[in-house]
Simulated assay, not measured.
Amino acid sequence: MELFQIVALALIQGLTEFLPISSSAHLILPTEVLGWPDQGLAFDVAVHFGSLIAVVVYFRRDVWALLRDGLGGLVNNRYTDEGRLAWLIVLATIPAGLAGLAFKDFIESHLRHASVIAATTIGFGILLWWADVRGARTQALAQLNWKRALWIGMAQALALIPGTSRSGITITAGLMLGMKREAAARFSFLMSIPVIALSALLLTFDLLSLEQVPWSELVLGTVLSCISAYLCIHFFLQFINRIGMAPFAIYRLLLGAALIWMIVG
């Protein structure tokens, strides 16, 4: 890839990983519209790793408290709010992990098409808007229980379908279950840590089969993805209570319409 393509794709991945607008929908556009080459497996690993670094660094105090109290609860059988939340995140990760193992090959072979991405971008965008308008938005993160966490985890499994958006569908589920906007977004971002880590690990195993690895491209992609993802998380949490989900839902509708225009045109 050329330098401009590396920069653009890394920034796109970092931003769209955590905004509820679908990274897969955005990564297909440069290929379909501009004729750019596929970024390849190695670059996917790099930008995912960059996103993982960003979310871990941003929530570093939360991550430490979750690990400390989650593991500590196993020893003394006494769980703080952070310890309980840690195991709720583990529980919510299981559905996506099982679905990924079961359906990864089918999704890669049959669902990575612009028509599927257009449909899911529009459909789940409307659902996001509906959940934001109709949701009670009264439940704090501390009030999350295992049933709600499991429902959000099952929603996360749907994000394996291209165009759905992992953050979008988990925030939608949280809002539908009555969570506050910031609480739903925060849980979504914390849930992303094990999911992105597992995804990057699986991609890394696939990467071992490659004979040549473009290390300079990967380092640049990792750094840019990390920076853009960190800024995205920060500003999203800063402004989500003021702007709501309507701007993202509208953007998804416009993006889905653009994809449909590309398909029929």
Rank of each mutant, 00 (worst) to 15 (best):
T138R: 15
R78A: 07
G73H: 08
G178C: 10
R112G: 08
L128C: 05
I263A: 12
A142V: 11
G97Q: 04
L158P: 00
A96K: 05
P194Y: 07
W87Y: 08
S228Y: 08
L160W: 01
T138Q: 15
G163Q: 08
R181H: 11
V57P: 02
F103M: 05
H110S: 11
T121G: 04
Q156R: 03
S167K: 01
I161A: 06
G40Q: 03
S188H: 01
A149L: 09
R186V: 02
L74Y: 02
E32K: 13
V133E: 14
V57E: 03
T204V: 15
F103R: 07
I171D: 00
M154Q: 07
S192H: 08
H113K: 15
Y58M: 02
A114Y: 10
V195H: 06
A65G: 07
L41E: 04
T121K: 07
I260R: 02
G83C: 12
A136V: 06
Q39N: 12
L158R: 02
A8S: 12
L202T: 08
Q5W: 11
S23D: 01
F187Y: 15
S165Y: 08
T164S: 06
L141K: 02
L91P: 04
V264H: 14
H234V: 03
V219A: 13
T172G: 13
H110E: 13
G70D: 09
V63A: 10
L158Y: 05
A185I: 02
G256I: 00
N76T: 12
G256A: 08
L128A: 10
W151M: 14
L101I: 12
S216N: 11
L66W: 05
L218G: 10
H113S: 15
S225I: 10
R78V: 04
G244N: 05
L237P: 02
I6D: 04
M262C: 08
L210G: 07
L3D: 06
L175M: 06
V195D: 03
S51M: 10
K180T: 03
A142F: 04
L34R: 08
S23R: 00
A131E: 03
I233Y: 03
I260H: 00
R60N: 14
I193Q: 02
R61T: 14
G244A: 03
V45T: 07
P30E: 01
W87Q: 08
M1K: 10
L237F: 13
G40F: 06
M176F: 13
P95I: 03
L91I: 14
L29N: 04
L144F: 03
A118D: 06
T121H: 01
Q212G: 11
V56P: 01
D69A: 10
M191R: 00
S22F: 09
S216W: 14
L158C: 11
F205L: 15
V219Y: 10
T172Q: 05
T222K: 00
G256L: 01
L208Y: 12
W146R: 09
G70M: 04
A197I: 01
F189V: 09
